[in-house]
Structures are given as structure tokens and as C-alpha cells.
């Protein structure tokens, strides 16, 4: 619940807003704050984590390969990435659908044909689409990071659930997702050690970018526009004072 009044009244008591879940781990994200920007290297590592780990279950329906230019890839690199996927196209002149290599304009490859297939493959649980995940969860990037690194031994008072894993950051504490990350499960192209924490931070950065790709432009322009309006306010304040001073005479 992120309503205005709640903010006013309970700004200092976050635990009440997140009832029953552990307080989130906070990370000093590079994209936080007024001048926040994305760390391109982290974004690209995060994309690698998504591609090699998350993408086998989680779709990102709203993203296209062309969007990857936004994390620092050149158009040719994007083309090469897109080409590694097979995309259905058609119908061709014979009226048949056919497979072709992906193009930058294509949407990200989806692991399942539809939600039903996704549920069928995951014991009835639907792996959520990740296109907007940091915007669609209370706590945003911190929540995603906390969840990814938050798997733990269940306390004695928690009743174990078959096929579910204990995670104090998840709303029900028992989550259907297998702990997705383990040390050195992937090999980063830039040689960064692939610890769970590193991978969680990188993929969270990537997901935050995917949710709000406009964030850098928004903050840069926002800063300039707010400065402009602030100066304009001061100018208007003096004009107003001058005009009204006429009445005193």
C-alpha cells in the first residue's frame, strides 16, 4: 500500500506497510537518487543472468531485442543476439508459418506458449512476466534483490510446504521458485566473479532498467526543468513584489 496518507503517517514505520514479511535489504543502487544512472557493465551482466538463468521460466513480453541498445550494445551486437533465437513468422506465400532467426524488432523469446503451458510446467505456479517487475512490487529493486538472495532455512515454527521453498521476503513466505542463483553457475563475459550477491545485483539492475528504461533521460531532464522552474519562480516572486508595491504608494 503506497497511498499518500499512509506515507504521511507511517513514513517511519515501514514494517507496518509490509506486514508479515522481513524488512527488505537495501542496496545503494546506481539508478537511485536525482542523478541516478545505470551502470552499463552491470546491465549487460544482468542481461546475461536473465538470459542464462531466468529466461528458462520467466518471459519479458514487453521488451524487444532492439531495446538492448539501451544497455550499451551496438546495433550489430543486438542483431547478433537476436539471431541466436528462432522466431515464428508467416504466413509465407504458401500460407504456412515458418521459423526464422530473430531480428532486433522481435519481442524477447518467451519460454512458454501461454500462461496455461507455464503453469503446467511449474506445478501450477505461474512465473510472473519480468518486464515491469520492479515497478509491480512494493519495494521495487530492493524487493527483487532481497527475494533473490533471501532463501533460508525455514524457522522451526514455519510448517514446511511440499514443493515450496522458504523465503521470508515473499508475501506467503513459501515460494514456488527454486533458489535460482548459486555461486559460479554462469561465467561472466567480463570476468567478474559470479557470486550469488553479484548476480542478484546485476540482474536486479537489468530488471530495473527493463521496468523503467526512461529513468536516465527522465532524471536528467527533470533536473534541468526543475531548476528552470525554480529560477522562474524567483523571477516571478520579484515581479509580483514590484507590481504589488504600486498599491502601497
Amino acid at each position: 500500500m503506497r497511498s499518500f496518507f499512509l506515507y504521511l503517517v507511517f513514513l517511519t514505520v515501514p514494517s507496518l506497510a509490509m506486514e508479515g514479511t522481513a524488512p527488505l535489504k537495501t542496496v545503494d543502487w546506481s539508478f537511485n537518487g536525482i542523478f541516478g544512472t545505470f551502470d552499463r557493465a552491470s546491465l549487460q551482466r544482468g542481461f546475461q543472468v536473465y538470459k542464462e538463468v531466468c529466461a528458462s521460466c520467466h518471459s519479458m513480453k514487453l521488451l524487444s531485442y532492439r531495446n538492448l541498445e539501451g544497455i550499451g550494445y551496438t546495433p550489430n551486437q543486438v542483431k547478433a543476439i537476436a539471431q541466436t533465437y528462432e522466431v515464428q513468422d508467416g504466413p509465407n506465400d504458401d500460407g504456412e508459418m515458418f521459423m526464422r532467426p530473430g531480428k532486433p524488432k522481435d519481442r524477447f523469446f518467451q519460454p512458454y506458449a501461454n500462461d496455461q503451458a507455464a503453469r503446467a510446467a511449474n506445478n501450477g505456479a505461474l512465473p510472473p512476466d519480468l518486464s515491469l517487475i520492479t515497478k509491480a512490487r512494493e519495494g521495487g529493486a530492493d524487493y527483487v534483490y532481497s527475494l533473490l538472495t533471501g532463501y533460508a532455512e525455514a524457522p522451526v515454527n514455519e510448517k514446511p510446504m511440499v514443493g515450496l521453498y522458504y523465503n521470508p521476503y515473499f508475501s506467503a513466505h513459501w515460494i514456488a521458485m527454486i533458489p535460482p542463483l548459486s555461486d559460479d553457475m554462469i561465467e561472466y563475459q567480463d570476468g567478474t566473479p559470479a557470486t550469488v550477491d553479484q548476480m542478484a545485483q546485476d540482474v536486479t539492475t537489468f530488471l530495473a532498467w527493463a521496468s523503467e528504461p526512461e529513468i536516465e533521460v527522465r532524471k536528467q531532464w527533470g533536473f534541468r526543468i526543475i531548476i528552470f522552474l525554480f529560477i522562474f519562480s524567483i523571477v516571478m516572486f520579484f515581479i509580483n513584489a514590484r507590481i504589488w508595491a504600486r498599491l502601497e504608494k
Binding site: M1, I34, S211, S233
Partner: peptide
Amino acid sequence: LVIFLTIWGAFVFFAPNFFGEPDNYI
């Protein structure tokens, strides 16, 4: 108006989802 726009702009550029609910991005 200019002061008001400054405040409005602060939300638009730096906390655009302050008044919103995360659930509406599902």
C-alpha cells in the same frame, strides 16, 4: 502556477509512481 508546476514536476520526474499502486503494473 510556476511554484505549483515545480512541485508537480518534482513528482513527474523524480517520484512518478508515488501516488500509484505497484499492483497496477500487473
